[in-house]
Amino acid sequence: MTQVDDKTYAELEQIAARYPEPRSGLLPMLHLVQSAHGRITPEGIEACADILGISAADVSGVATFYTMYKRRPVGDYHVGVCTNTLCAVMGGDAIFSRLKDHLDVGNDETTPDGKITLEHIECNAACDYAPVMMVNWEFMDNQTPESATQLVDDLRSGNEVRSTRGPRIVTWRQAERVLAGYPDGLVDEGPAAGPASLVGLRLARENDWKAPDSPGLETGAGAPSSTSEAEEGK
């Protein structure tokens, strides 16, 4: 039995109160349940149902629909390998297969030390960094079977690991708390953009390519601020 403690219950109520209609809070509330309990527990479902005035079956129906909600305990690090077509072709299949061997687990299984849950995931919107992995939903770009095994070894031995364009990796339960709407102060870690995101912008800078000048004198809204000869371009 994993009881919902008073703090968690109060926070669940807080989440529901953010919305014009409380039930809109259910998705973030379930993220908070995972943060508190390490999975979706029957007690967590009951608490959500109780707060929202709906049946536990209603809550269960939602919890079983979305893939981020887990009914079995998740390790400290959820390691996702994209095996949708583009990443698979670029090496995701080889990475996933290597990690299954290396960790001796199957898909959606956790290592006996409770550290790592391995799962193959669908497209995570980082295709220009293929093959892509996610650790607790942080980007690990441009992976190889070798970098992937090193990554999981580092995670298992407690070495600090950073996203390739984000912050240091927190635990899965800490990450779930952010998804519930409770920021963790790591927003300023990592760059604005990774290298692939900047390929076009770098070319534009090199060639002095710009959006047309604003007809007015004012500048802003992320538009070009210089008054140079954009008209001269190709």
């Binding site: 534009a204 992320g222 070009p224 371009g233």
Partner: peptide
């Protein structure tokens, strides 16, 4: 121009 960075600028 060939590229017109606005949102990415």
């Amino acid at each position: 121009d060939t590229l017109t960075p606005v949102l990415t600028d």
